[in-house]
């Protein structure tokens, strides 16, 4: 069994996890296993990428890196766990657009951490463009078609992976730009939403590129617009929203963040290793296949990035009416 050795590593890590939060950061970091808290249930894109990154970091740092799923409350539960952990460099959270930009606005005072100041943001891992796709028989080929449909008496149905997601907020924002509210149809996850679009029950969908990529390639849906600053290298034919006259560019993202107060040396080291790992040609091609772009920011750059995202999404959340109370 070729995977036996890696299990020994996992085993060793389990024994050391209890001590992780207690010991002061030793001189030679890492001297014990590192835990990456993923604030989502196993199986999502974030979880998947976290495991990929964990495997890469484990090799580079020479210490075991384990993934710990703490899902719940719009990804805020897991993030809170990390915000309150000891800043010794052995606990990280997979910070993301939900936990660190949207949910704090949605959940308000129930989120007991500050997404910017309670963390030492270490590295941006990936950004995923948002893409709008349409059923091939819907007649919608461009955003102008979509807006025309929205203004028609029947209106335009747009599916998303859920209320309060960045995709939902995109629909709200697009409605504002088009001057006509779109009929938002939330689903429980991207899979069922995509199925409804393929089946023609819903005309359009606002989705993140990784989950839509394969369906676009297979032609089961048509990509109408890419909501990012530039066209995506894997989908050069899909024009951006800006090219089509709608000033909207927003990517979903996730990265790695320590609790605030973690020694700068550790944060920098993790940043270097993560960027080196993400920069390898193999990973770049895997991410390109997935539809994402590997992140390449310094810790300061990532912190500034999170700060900007928080400022960007809060008013949109207010406008969408998606609050938890």
């Amino acid at each position: 069994m070729s995977w036996a050795p890696s299990r020994r590593v996992l085993l060793a890590s389990t024994m050391t996890v209890p001590m992780a939060g207690r010991r002061a950061a030793a001189q030679a970091w890492p001297s014990q296993s590192i835990r990456i808290v993923v604030p989502f249930a196993p199986g999502g894109t974030t979880d998947l990428v976290a495991r990929l990154v964990a495997a890469g970091l484990q090799e580079r740092l020479g210490a075991s890196v384990v993934v710990d799923n703490r899902a719940g409350a719009g990804a805020t539960l897991g993030s809170e766990v990390v915000a309150r952990s000891a800043p010794d460099g052995y606990t990280l959270v997979m910070s993301n657009i939900a936990s660190h930009a949207i949910s704090p606005a949605v959940y308000g005072t129930r989120v007991r951490y500050n997404p910017v100041t309670d963390f030492a943001h270490a590295a941006l891992v990936v950004t995923n463009p948002t893409v709008w796709v349409a059923n091939p028989n819907s007649g919608i080929k461009t955003l102008a078609d979509a807006v025309a449909k929205a203004r028609s008496p029947s209106g335009l149905d747009v599916a998303t992976s859920g209320a309060g997601s960045s995709n939902h907020l995109m629909v709200v924002r697009m409605g504002q730009l088009a001057g006509k509210e779109m009929n938002h149809i939330p689903f429980r996850g991207a899979g069922p939403a995509m199925q409804a679009v393929i089946a023609g029950q819903v005309a359009m969908m606002s989705d993140s590129l990784p989950s839509a990529a394969s369906h676009i390639r297979q032609g089961s849906v048509v990509a109408v617009g890419m909501a990012s600053a530039e066209r995506h290298p894997s989908f050069p034919d899909v024009p951006t929203f800006r090219e089509q006259g709608f000033d909207l560019a927003s990517d979903s993202w996730f990265g790695l963040s320590f609790p605030a107060g973690t020694p700068a040396g550790i944060v920098d080291r993790l940043n270097r290793e993560t960027r080196a790992f993400l920069g390898s040609p193999e990973i770049r091609s895997r991410f390109a296949e997935l539809g994402g772009t590997p992140g390449d920011l310094t810790p300061d750059g990532y912190t500034e990035f999170v700060r900007r995202e928080v400022a960007l999404w809060a008013p949109l959340v207010q406008a969408s009416g998606a609050t938890a109370d």
């Binding site: 996992l10 085993l11 389990t14 024994m15 209890p18 207690r22 710990d68």
Partner: peptide, 15 residues
């Protein structure tokens, strides 16, 4: 649970 399934749980008391 610990050896085979690798559940994330403290095994011994923490100090």
């Amino acid at each position: 649970f610990i050896y085979e399934l690798d559940i994330r749980v403290p095994v011994w008391p923490q100090f």
